[in-house]
């Protein structure tokens, strides 16, 4: 296991993605190291969600290579792919809960598929996950259409964490949460990273999250990574968008 620690958990090389004639990602390179929380920022429509979906394999790329856990998903067979899928969790921007299942069934869905555990343990773990994401036990029997926007986000996170994955992709996890909830959420991600050695790929617009939760920040612009580094590097950057992002009115409010 020792050499693996040095290896990046996600390795993205020269990927190009286009829809019709519009190129969204253009020769993008990115490494995510094991055990880090990577905050991913960039203007709306820059292609953050597209990159996330490309890594997961939901959007096909024109060129480039992607390795997750050292497995190239393009050349892998079904069992390798399932092995990888078992080890990651995904929180979609819109939640993507199964609308005809209750919250409890949503969270247990991946457990049923991948683990052979008793119903009792599944129910108990479901309650633990709900408590972890800050939801009351009563929520378990509700359907997604009966939840608020922030609750949907939390349930979706609980489902992403259902199998205790090693890697989670979070697409704007704190948007739609109240500031206290968002703070708790950042705390939770930190706790999970410390205890489970979780690697987190987090797309976010939330400056607080960037400051409190992220180890490293990558910035997407014009289809490429225009900067990557610690929050201090970002603040020191001379790139106009970054200057505005980290020194604008909102950023000053967060830092003061």
């Amino acid at each position: 296991m020792a050499p693996e620690i040095q290896d990046p958990i996600i390795r993205v090389r020269d990927i190009t993605v286009q829809f019709g004639s519009t190129r969204v990602l253009d020769g993008l390179n990115l490494d995510v190291k094991r055990g880090e929380i990577l905050g991913f920022v960039g203007p709306s429509g820059a292609g953050k969600s597209v990159l996330t979906r490309t890594i997961i394999g939901l959007v096909s790329k024109v060129a480039g290579r992607i390795e997750v856990f050292g497995v190239d998903l393009d050349s892998s067979n079904t069992s390798q792919r399932r092995g990888v899928e078992r080890r990651w969790g995904v929180l979609f921007q819109q939640g993507a809960l199964f609308s005809s299942l209750t919250v409890r069934q949503n969270i247990q869905f991946p457990m049923r598929e991948y683990l052979k555990v008793s119903q009792r343990l599944m129910d108990e773990i479901t309650m633990a996950k709900l408590a972890m994401v800050g939801l009351k036990p009563e929520v378990a029997e509700r359907f997604p259409s009966e939840l608020s926007g922030g609750m949907i986000k939390r349930v979706a996170l609980a489902r992403a964490l259902a199998l205790d994955p090693e890697l989670v992709f979070l697409d704007e996890p704190t948007s739609g949460l109240d500031p206290i909830g968002a703070g708790d959420f950042d705390e939770l991600v930190r706790t999970l990273q410390r205890t489970l050695g979780l690697t987190v790929f987090m797309v976010t617009h939330d400056l607080d999250s960037l400051y409190t939760a992220c180890d490293r920040i990558a910035v997407l612009g014009n289809g490429k990574i225009i900067a990557a580094g610690s929050i201090a590097d970002m603040q020191a950057s001379q790139h106009p968008w970054l200057r505005q992002y980290f020194h604008g009115k909102r950023a000053r409010a967060v830092m003061s």
């Binding site: 129910d123 108990e124 309650m127 633990a128 999970l192």
Partner: peptide, 12 residues
Amino acid sequence: SLVDEVRRVKAT
């Protein structure tokens, strides 16, 4: 902290 986290879970 993980154990603390699950300790807060009420009996189901």
